[in-house]
């Protein structure tokens, strides 16, 4: 599966356009991490726990998008965009979407 946020893949032709595919997940860290992050907020710096949380979530969202693309017979997803929103305090939502296409070999 080829993933790209370009519109076109250089040197490859798009054979079929298969439409919008999307993947999303909502995740939360356990309460202990929330406390640690709160403490870390006092001194600033990177919140490792949350970086990890969002990283995991982004991977999962991408994975789900790819799963959708696979299911409809695509071999690439182009023009991928990511969006983050916090649905509830302490939980974050990761959303990935793009256009599934079939590229020529």
């Amino acid at each position: 599966m080829l993933l790209s946020n370009l519109e076109v893949v250089p040197h490859k032709k798009i054979v079929r356009h298969l439409g919008l595919v999307q993947g999303s997940t909502v995740r939360a860290k356990h309460a202990g991490r929330d406390i640690m992050a709160g403490l870390k907020n006092l001194v600033g710096g990177e919140l490792k726990g949350y970086t990890e949380l969002l990283q995991d979530a982004r991977e999962e969202a991408t994975g789900r998008m790819v799963e959708q693309a696979n299911a409809i017979g695509a071999n690439a997803v182009l023009n991928i965009r990511y969006a983050t929103s916090s649905v509830a305090s302490g939980a974050s939502e990761l959303f990935a979407y793009g256009t599934a296409v079939e590229l020529e070999d």
């Binding site: 999303s24 909502v26 995740r27 939360a28 356990h30 309460a31 991490r33 509830a88």
Partner: peptide
């Protein structure tokens, strides 16, 4: 979801919400 936030992990109840909304 409130209970789930204590434990961490995937919030299934919110996932269906955003799926429906989208």
């Amino acid at each position: 979801a409130g209970l789930r936030m204590l434990v961490g992990g995937r919030l299934r109840s919110y996932e269906t919400l955003v799926d429906r909304g989208r």
